[in-house]
Amino acid sequence: MSDGENATDDGEPDDQPPMEAARYPDGTILYPPHPLGPDGAEPVGTVDLSEYHATVVTWTSSTATPPGVREPNHLGIVEFDVDGEAVRAIGQLTTDEVEIGDTVEPVYVPELRDPDAGIREAESHSWDGYRFRPVE
């Protein structure tokens, strides 16, 4: 994204896609959205997780990364609390200055890894997504 179309001057994207999770009839929220939720129920709505904070459940810093992936690659599984309903997501962390239990927020990134490197098929899907940044 070199044309700045997806990012404003302060680095905050102006048309970022939602970090979309699905809500099911029993209140369960799943990320990514699954076609069927608990008891085979279809989703009844969506939740944009980028509007919520999350807690770090586990994380690592990977130094042996494959082609096209930043090195080191800080990765975490985080748990969002959406009005009392827990839902987890995996994603890159903006820093390794983090501990289990810390609060983080999603920040949009237009390209999480280089789709032209290694064995990837660049046209197979999009490469943007969210990183998690500690909340001071």
Binding site: T58, S62, T65, N73, L75, I90, G91, R113, S124, G129
Partner: peptide
């Protein structure tokens, strides 16, 4: 591929996440 590998997760890092947990 869409949610783990796109973030650069490899199996060493996946098992590292399990180990830390």
């Amino acid at each position: 591929e869409l949610y783990e590998v796109r973030a650069g997760m490899t199996f060493p890092s996946a098992y590292a996440l399990m180990a830390q947990a």
